[in-house]
Amino acid sequence: MSELNLRRLRYFLAVADTLNFGRAAERLHIAQPVLSRQIALLESELGVTLFVRSSRGTSLTDAGRLVQEDAASLLQSADALRKRARSAALGVDRLALGFMPGLMVTPIVQGLRQSFPGIELQLVRTGWDDQVDTILDGRVDLGLVRLPVPERGLQVEPLFAENRVAVLSTAHPLAAAATLNLAALAESELLQSPDAAPEWREARRRLDLPVAMNSDHPRDVEIKLERVAASSGVVFLPASTARFYTRPDVVVRAVAGLEPSRVAVARRTGHSSRVLLEAVALAHALRASLTTERVLDEDGPRGSR
Rank of each mutant, 00 (worst) to 15 (best):
L95Y: 01
T170E: 13
R152G: 11
E120F: 09
D141K: 04
L123G: 13
F116D: 03
D141Q: 05
A186E: 02
L159T: 05
A176H: 12
A80C: 06
P150C: 04
T179Y: 09
L190P: 02
R84L: 13
D195M: 10
L168W: 00
T106P: 01
M104S: 12
T126C: 12
I135G: 01
G98N: 08
L185M: 06
Q114P: 05
V156N: 02
D141T: 06
A171G: 11
H172A: 05
I108Q: 04
W128S: 11
L112W: 02
V109N: 04
L174V: 02
V140E: 00
R82T: 10
S115N: 13
A78W: 09
G153T: 08
Q114I: 05
E151M: 13
A88W: 10
A184M: 12
E162R: 02
R113G: 06
P117Y: 08
L112S: 02
G102Q: 07
L95K: 06
E162A: 03
V105P: 00
E157T: 15
A186C: 09
E162L: 07
K83I: 15
V145A: 04
E189F: 00
A176V: 08
Q122E: 14
V109R: 11
T179S: 13
K83H: 14
S77M: 05
G102I: 07
F160S: 00
L142T: 00
E151W: 04
P107G: 07
T106F: 05
L90W: 05
R113I: 02
V109Y: 03
Q110E: 15
R113K: 14
A184I: 07
A186I: 06
L81H: 11
L168I: 02
P150R: 09
S115K: 15
A183C: 09
I119S: 03
R113H: 11
Q110I: 08
D137C: 14
L159E: 02
V109E: 11
L185V: 02
G127V: 15
V165W: 00
A166Y: 00
Q192E: 10
L81F: 10
A161V: 03
L144G: 00
S87A: 15
R146P: 00
I119Y: 07
A176F: 06
D129N: 14
S169G: 13
D79A: 08
D130H: 14
V124Y: 11
V167D: 00
V145D: 00
K83Y: 13
I135F: 04
R139T: 14
P117G: 10
A78F: 05
P194M: 11
S193G: 08
H172L: 05
S169A: 14
D137E: 15
I119G: 03
A184F: 06
D141C: 06
V132N: 05
R152S: 14
M104N: 12
A85T: 13
L75F: 09
D195E: 13
A186T: 08
Q192W: 10
V140A: 04
E187N: 10
N181K: 13
D141F: 07
V149M: 01
L95A: 02
A85F: 10
I119Q: 06
S77G: 15
D195K: 13
L81S: 12
Q122P: 06
Q110F: 09
Q110R: 14
F160H: 05
L136C: 04
D130W: 12
I119N: 03
R82W: 11
L182A: 03
L154E: 04
P101T: 09
L74M: 12
A176Q: 12
L180C: 08
L121N: 04
R94D: 05
R84E: 05
R86C: 04
